Simulated scan of single mutants.
Amino acid sequence: MTSSPRVVVLAGGVGGSKFTLGVREALARRGAPQATVVVNTGDDLWLSGVRLQPDVDSILYALAGVNDTERGWGRAGDTERVNHELQQWDAGWPWFTLGDLDLGTHLARTGWLREGLTPTQVAERLSRRWPLGVRLLPMTDAEVDTRVLVEGGDVMHFQEWWTRHRARLVPRAFENAGMDAARPAPGVIEAIAEADVVLVAPSNPVVSIGPILAVPGVREALAATSARVVGVSPIIGGAVVRGMADVCLAAIGVETSASAVARHYGARRAGGLLDAWLLAEEDTGLAPDVAALGMTAAVAPLWMRDVAASAHIADAALAAAIR
């Protein structure tokens, strides 16, 4: 691998946005080309007539430096006058807040979609506003919103399960209707084929990374690429960093441990995804278990407290690719 590698990142959610900031910083220091970030769109939904893409927007806002770092979603300094008015009309979801600035993004996106642009073209147009330093691609241009089958038989949109119920309803399955007919967004397969390194962000393995890997053709592209595929553990010391990824993992029979998630992804030499897995220092003792799976096990501090720390993690992941 050269000192200025071509990098593709698979990402979603807050963990994905923080990691992407680190990758951008690490590559800029190396004078490397901008990374291509393939973003989960399984969280997407229609609400009050507008199209929301929560993971795309989280990463967009983080790269632009306008994200609300305290809440972990939306725009910094946003107001909620329109959201309040929607509630007065009994429209939308009273438990799902749309900030006014955030709503401006959704309205722009919806207008462009109505004019015939694809989600890929919309992402490119949204990216023009700020110097992001990466190329953002949705995983697919198809609508494959995540649905959750909960105990008792009810089916609901992922955002209702995650935001309204805070994942307290026991999930039995996650599904993306229409995924079989979906195709990777233009540029996704080409970026993977031309990459030197593919980094799997420390995002939720089930509902952030899982949908990306489920798009027909993506796993095949990852199996065929000459790039090294390196994953970063979203589990530190046997616990999730934030969110409810442990609940999602339990639903698919995976325990909340760094080695179990590595096993879930699998080693590429054995038909899985990864060539290397980056564990937290707290999980150093699991390195032999990971190596036994058939992938390189590397260890580094994984707390993404700021951009510098995230860049350190990105550097460690790139170093694992060399090994």
Rank of each mutant, 00 (worst) to 15 (best):
A224V: 07
E190P: 08
L213F: 07
A224C: 08
W161Y: 04
L117D: 01
A250S: 10
R242T: 12
E160V: 13
E255F: 00
G210M: 07
S127P: 08
A201Y: 07
R128F: 02
D154L: 10
E175M: 15
G187Y: 07
G253K: 02
R228N: 06
V188P: 03
L249P: 01
V247L: 03
A185W: 08
S127H: 07
I252P: 02
V144N: 04
P216K: 14
M244F: 11
P119K: 02
A193Q: 11
V230Q: 11
Q121S: 06
F174W: 12
A185C: 13
P131V: 12
I209P: 00
P131N: 13
Q121P: 02
Q159G: 10
I209H: 00
A193M: 10
V215A: 06
E220W: 08
A245C: 08
I209W: 00
R129I: 14
G178L: 12
E194D: 14
A177V: 15
A193P: 09
A182T: 09
L117M: 14
G153C: 13
V206G: 03
A182P: 07
G237L: 10
L199D: 05
G231M: 08
W130R: 01
V200I: 15
A223N: 09
A239N: 06
R166G: 07
W162I: 03
M139G: 07
A201N: 08
L249N: 01
C248H: 14
E190L: 08
G178W: 11
V207R: 00
V170I: 12
I192V: 15
L149T: 14
R135V: 15
V122D: 01
A191V: 05
P131I: 09
E175V: 15
W130S: 04
V206D: 04
V155I: 14
V148F: 02
V198N: 04
L136T: 03
P234M: 09
V198L: 12
V122K: 00
W161D: 00
A227C: 11
V206M: 07
L169P: 00
D154C: 03
V148E: 02
G210K: 04
P216Y: 13
P171S: 06
V150C: 04
P186K: 14
A182V: 13
P205A: 06
T225V: 12
G153F: 12
S127Y: 05
Q121L: 06
G237T: 07
E160C: 04
D145T: 13
V229H: 03
L222G: 10
M156A: 11
T256C: 15
G231D: 06
T140G: 08
P216E: 12
G116R: 03
A191F: 03
P234K: 06
W161V: 01
V215P: 02
V155N: 00
M244Q: 13
